[in-house]
């Protein structure tokens, strides 16, 4: 009886350590966060970005105020103005991340696909003032998201309205330049 129980104990011990040792040598599931950025899905609803149009690097936003209207937490404040071509364009665009609930309604309602929620999720600050993103900040976020190739075709539209299809192994910067009309050596 004693031998039996000793055998069982050792067997259990080996089985337990086997799990531990296999996990020790297998790939980890956690990410050492500040050093490495975790992978998030493209459908992740992170910080907002203002996206741009075709090769002229123009804003997509037509200042229709629909995102500000639909926002359930009233975190978007915007003002429009008339640009040099007498079109309706954005003058001021503030998003209060302290109020935002990341529901994505603004993205959904936007008729020009100008505001999109990017994958950047680590926007932190020690000051509440900094949580209010202005137009320039949102443009920066949008531009970096475009460089990362988020939202399908780089978030870029051609002049004819068609989206460029995103390919996995493509040099993103090259295609970005190609869209902007520059010649790229491959």
């Amino acid at each position: 009886m004693i031998l039996k129980s000793v055998y069982d104990g050792i067997k259990g011990l080996i089985a337990g350590y086997a799990v531990t040792i296999t996990k020790f040598f297998s790939r980890g599931t956690t990410v050492p966060y500040p050093e490495k950025t975790p992978f998030v899905s493209e459908r992740w609803r992170g910080v907002h970005g203002l996206f741009f149009t075709d090769n002229r690097f123009e804003e997509l936003c037509v200042s229709c105020h629909l995102c500000a209207k639909v926002c359930p937490s009233v975190c978007i404040t915007m003002e429009g103005s008339e640009d040099y071509l007498q079109r309706k364009r954005l003058k001021r665009f503030d998003v209060d991340l302290g109020r935002c609930i990341y529901c994505g309604y603004c993205e959904e309602v936007c008729p020009a696909d100008a505001i999109r929620l990017t994958t950047s999720h680590d926007y932190v600050s020690r000051d509440r003032e900094n949580l209010i993103l202005h137009k320039e900040d949102l443009i920066e976020i949008g531009k970096s998201a475009m460089r990362r190739g988020e939202h399908g075709a780089l978030g870029i539209r051609r002049g004819d309205g068609k989206k460029v299809v995103y390919q996995e192994n493509r040099n993103l910067d090259a295609s970005f330049k190609a869209l902007s009309g520059e010649r790229v050596k491959r």
Partner: peptide, 9 residues
């Protein structure tokens, strides 16, 4: 004042 704000705002 054109395009500054929407009427409901």
């Amino acid at each position: 004042g054109k395009f500054w704000k929407k009427d409901w705002e």
